[in-house]
Nucleic acid binder design. Sequence first.
DNA 1: GTGGTTTTGACAATCATTATCAATAAGCCT
DNA 2: AGGCTTATTGATAATGATTGTCAAAACCAC
Lengths: 143, 143
Amino acid sequence: MKRNTWQREAVREALDDTEGFISAQALHSTLHASGSPIGLATVYRALGDLASNGEADSLQSPDGEALYRACSTTGHHHHLICRNCGLTVEIAADEVEAWAKAVAAEHGFTGAAHVVDVFGLCANCTLLQAAGDTAKLAAAQKP
Amino acid sequence: MKRNTWQREAVREALDDTEGFISAQALHSTLHASGSPIGLATVYRALGDLASNGEADSLQSPDGEALYRACSTTGHHHHLICRNCGLTVEIAADEVEAWAKAVAAEHGFTGAAHVVDVFGLCANCTLLQAAGDTAKLAAAQKP
DNA sequence: GTGGTTTTGACAATCATTATCAATAAGCCT
DNA sequence: AGGCTTATTGATAATGATTGTCAAAACCAC
Ligand SMILES: [Zn+2]
Ligand SMILES: [Zn+2]
Ligand SMILES: [Zn+2]
Ligand SMILES: [Zn+2]
C-alpha cells in the first residue's frame, strides 16, 4: 500500500511554491536551503510519482534535463515558458490536440502522444534584455 | 576556417543512410560496425555541427537523449515518430506554426521557438503488436 | 613541400538519473 | 501503547550520456 511521508508532502509543497518548471536537482537544493534534510533520491522518486499521478507535469528541457511543475489546470494542456526566468503560462489548445490526433491517424499511427512546448523570453525579461540590464537578467534567471 | 575531413563526411553519410532519428552513441556504433575507426567525441562534434548548420534535425527523446536525423525537407517542419522502430514522417503544419507564434505574441514573449513532436506506433508495429508477435516487434526495434 | 591552424581521439571529467540495500518509520493489529 | 510487517528512505555506488583536455595527426593555403 502507499504510505504518506513528510518527504512526499515536502516535495509536493516545494513544487507548489515554485512558479515555473524546476529540475529534481534544483528542487532538492531548494529544500536543503530551507533546512530540509530530504535525500536526493527521494526527491527524484517523489517527482516521478507526482508525474505518474498527473499531479505534476513534466517535460524535457532543451538540454535534456527533466523538469517538473505543479500546474493549476487539471486537464491536458501545454506550456509557454520563459527560457530565462522560467515563468510559465499554461495553454489549452484544442486546435493542436485535433491536429496531433489527425496527423497520427492519417499515417496509421496508434497510441499517439505529443510533445508541444513553446520557449521564449517573457515580456519582463525582454525588457531587461533590451535595456542591456544583464545584472537584473541574471538575477531573474532560474537556478 | 572550416576544414573537410573524412570523419565529418562519414557522419553525414551514415546519417543519410539512417531512416529515423538516431543517437550519437548509436551512430558511432553503426560506424564502428561498418569498419570505421572514427572516435566517439568526433561523432558528437559532427552531429552538433550538422544540427547547427541546419543540415540535420535534432530532438530530445522522451527519456532525454539527443537524437539526430538528416531530413529531406529543407524548411522548418515537425515529426511523427514510431517509438518502436523509429520510422519517421516529416510533417509541415502551418497551422501549428501560426498557433505557436500567436500564443507567444499574446503573452508578450519574444524570440519564441517551439518543440512539437508526435510519438506513436507506426502501422506496421501496430500490426505486429496486435498479432502478439513480440519477436518481430523486438527485431524491428531501433537500437 | 612547409607551416600555421584546425581537427581528431583516447581518456578523464562532469552531470543527471537510477540501482543498492541496510536502516527507518507508516499503518495496521491487538 | 506496543509490536509487526513492509513500504520508504537515503547514503552511496553505478550507470550512461555528454563535454572537456590536450598532444598528435591531418588540412590546406602558400
Ligand atoms: Zn522571463
Ligand atoms: Zn496536447
Ligand atoms: Zn514502427
Ligand atoms: Zn514548427
